[in-house]
Write a protein that binds this DNA or RNA. Structure first.
Lengths: 327, 327
DNA sequence: CGCCACTATGACAACGTTGTCTCCCCACGG
DNA sequence: CCGTGGGGAGACAACGTTGTCATAGTGGCG
């Protein structure tokens, strides 16, 4: 800036005035300044500007498990949409389901003075965020609750959705239902398992632990267990997939199986409707989840001091065929 | 920081020393400072720090069409991986295929002093980036080239891939092949159309303009044209989808059609292998695209001044069945 | 002619840090 | 007893901006 000022033969302050379109600059002077700016390729430093003006950085942080996972990328998009409408940009980070990385990202974002942070938590301990929150950085948890602190949270109805899935399968004649979920360390996975158990109880179906598998879904991990679940006299005639990753891997494992069980997936996913049979899912509006969380975050950013809120978004079963297969 | 200094009864500089783990601070003093920091919830301002030290902001910008599109989110993930390995964070933005928005995002990121920018360009004019690049912000274009400037670019072999798709279909007996692509304003769409034409020529198949549709893929836009392309005595017996969005919409439009044409999709997509028949695709490694572009960007950030590079990544046809359907 | 209002501009401080330099104190060696 | 050296700490400036205030010049009006 001082280079520009020197070249234009004005003070640094006048350059600032021109850059900020402030009035009270003589057109001729402004022209000289603009020319100097062009010539030197000057760009004002937004960081310094924000520092001096005490204004916000105009960014929010978003921490998810994996920005490449379609579920989270849809969330990311929804958050970005709201952020843009509030004139903010989004810093994203993937925690990789690792609580240390989550913490590192969150603290880093806070140090950068983001206006707020949205977290899909990987860990169960969030005490480290308390000082940041007290220092004025709002934090909203989404998809999963905070571990050991009270904070704004937006969830989906994991329990109700899984119960509904069980009920649907029972209504179509199934009594032996398997549940394949993600690692039980993940809140949503544990919660859906709880829903599964509750659903069995409510529908008068025996809950059989041997028909439950909870582990990180990979083609191998799912492939190995699926036949064990479905064969034998006590094998399951229907299976519930605990999330879209499980569902996809399960479908792949079943692709060449002789016997196709009935299936319901928690989480909708692209092309579920085009498979044969089309996959019945417990759908929830991922965009709505992102929207709700971001809206809540911006309310906090704008000074909403009310008590921490907990929002649970509804889910609904979309019957497409795979859940209606007879035992 | 001055509050902390006052509370601890030391100078502001000593606080700085403690915060930065500098030696030559008496343990007792350090302890007092740490206590004051705890009590006040002090967090150092990274922006001010970077300003003073003249160090980088530790961020790079990534501009894609839509962070929610699985293709771009996979790209995002790959870029994040490299960025993390270089200790950087990623600011993302969706241009929504709008060149004004792209420009706005890019200039905004530059003003924030990102260390570099990765752009999947929406527009064809990038002269606006020249001053930024001269000012020292490296820019790498990926998936599509810059419009009117010479710059680092990483592309995939759109031309070769589409030619291969045509060749594959011809080898399976097809002579009337339709091409459904995205809006011709998009580089990859135009390039793939060029490849389609070239493929027809090389394979001695007549290139028939009436079998080409180029438009933004939506369920409606695709649904309306598809039957026109495939019916009648001159209807196509095979169709090439210009990208994954087109493919998905096309599949949906064809789901209940009496007559299923052969099909090849440019871009692989999840579950393509589980459809009936499984979808033959021209696959390319999206992660590799992101990696290559990010690696190139960081080489520039670290001072590589060599001539702008243009990288074209290979594609390969994955025959799964849908392209092998007889006419 | 003197005063005022107004325009155009600049000097200076401050935002929150950190690098440089200086100062003080105490232990140690001669 | 004095000189030296090193550990511990602070004063000050600077990073790139912008807000505040001051100043110089100009034109109009009584």
């Amino acid at each position: 800036m001082s280079d520009v000022a020197r070249l234009a033969g004005v003070s640094i302050k006048t350059v600032s005035r021109v850059v900020n379109d402030e009035p009270a600059v003589h057109p001729d002077t402004a022209e000289r300044v603009v020319a100097a700016i062009e010539q030197l390729g000057f760009r004002r430093n937004l960081g310094a500007r924000n520092l001096r003006r005490g204004s916000s950085t105009g960014t929010i942080g978003l921490i998810v498990e994996d920005v490449g996972n379609p579920f989270y990328s849809e969330l990311n998009r929804a958050v970005e949409r709201i952020a843009t409408s509030f004139g903010r940009h989004v810093l994203t980070g993937s925690s990789e389901e690792n609580s240390d990385r989550e913490r590192e990202l969150a603290l880093e974002f806070c140090a950068r003075r983001v206006d707020g942070v949205l977290v899909v938590p990987a860990g169960l301990q969030h005490g480290y965020l308390v000082p940041e929150m007290r220092a004025g950085t709002p934090v909203v948890f989404l998809d999963r609750p905070a571990g050991d602190i009270v904070a704004d949270t937006v969830l989906v109805d994991n329990l109700g959705g899984t119960i509904e899935a069980v009920t649907h399968l029972v209504a179509h004649g199934h009594r032996r239902i398997a549940f394949v979920g993600d690692s039980p360390d993940i809140f949503t996975a544990a919660e859906r398992l709880r829903g599964f158990r509750e659903g069995c109880v409510r529908n008068g179906v025996s809950y059989d632990e041997s028909l439950v598998v909870m582990r990180t879904p990979t083609p191998d991990s799912i492939g190995h267990v699926v036949s064990a679940l479905l064969t034998g006299p006590d094998g399951a005639t229907a299976v519930i997939a605990g999330n879209n990753r499980v569902a996809v891997n399960l479908l792949r494992a079943l692709a060449h199986a002789a016997h196709r069980p009935a299936m319901v997936s928690f989480d909708d996913f692209e092309l579920a409707d085009l498979l044969d049979p089309p996959v019945t899912v417990v759908a929830h509006d991922v965009s709505a989840l992102g929207h709700a969380a971001a809206e809540l975050l911006f309310a906090r950013i704008q000074g909403d001091q009310s008590a921490p809120r907990k929002v649970v978004l509804p889910v609904h079963l979309v019957a497409r065929g795979s859940g209606e297969v007879a035992p």
